[in-house]
Amino acid sequence: MKRILVAVDGSDTSLKAARMASDVALRFGAKLTLVHVVPKLLLPPDVYGLTIAEVEKEHRAYADALLEKAVKALEEPGLDVSTTVLYGSPAEAIAEEAAAIDVGMVVVGSRGYGAVARMFLGSVSDRLVHISSKPVLVVR
């Protein structure tokens, strides 16, 4: 296993999933890639009083900060961690990233939160299990 992909959204469950994935990565000498998906806008940007570029900039800044916090929470000697921001529908974006040849498995929390994740109530992990070409570990 060369790389483990972990979806993080800042929820306790996703951080628990990241910690479990880091244990697996250390045991098997795998790299860890933390990903956060910036979903498509549910409402037009003018509803927010912003331009599309401003909304995208805010989403990217949030994603970068969230990933940085997750990396700091996982500081382990010998752990090789990278981060990636994906865009689109969460389950589909994660499955597409996981299709890379060097990804051995995907780890995801059973439930997340956030503006969009609240709507899914665990359906991202459920959908990912069904569409991913790689094994998916769902952490509760």
Results as ranks from 00 to 15, higher is better:
R3E: 15
L5E: 02
L5G: 00
V6G: 00
V6T: 06
A7D: 02
G10Q: 08
S11L: 06
T13M: 14
T13S: 14
K16H: 14
R19W: 04
R19Y: 03
R19E: 13
M20Y: 12
A21T: 11
D23E: 14
R27W: 11
F28V: 14
G29D: 05
L32S: 08
T33I: 06
T33G: 04
T33A: 06
V35Q: 00
H36L: 03
V37C: 01
L42E: 11
L42W: 12
P44Q: 05
P44V: 13
P45A: 06
D46W: 15
V47W: 11
Y48W: 14
G49W: 06
I52R: 14
I52M: 12
E54F: 03
V55G: 15
V55D: 05
V55E: 14
E56K: 06
E56I: 02
K57G: 03
E58K: 15
D64F: 02
A65Y: 00
L67A: 07
K69H: 12
A70D: 01
K72S: 14
K72M: 13
A73K: 09
G78M: 06
G78W: 12
L79Y: 08
D80R: 10
V81E: 04
S82P: 02
T83N: 10
T84N: 13
Y87K: 15
S89A: 13
E92V: 11
I94M: 02
I94P: 00
A95Y: 06
A98Y: 01
D102R: 04
D102F: 00
G104L: 01
G104H: 03
M105I: 11
M105L: 15
V107C: 04
V108Q: 02
G109A: 10
R111Q: 14
R111I: 07
G112P: 01
V116A: 11
A117G: 08
A117F: 00
R118W: 09
M119D: 04
V124K: 02
S125W: 00
R127H: 11
R127P: 00
L128S: 01
H130E: 13
I131Y: 04
K134V: 04
P135Y: 14
V136E: 00
V138F: 08
V138L: 11
V139W: 05
V139E: 02
V139M: 07
V139T: 02
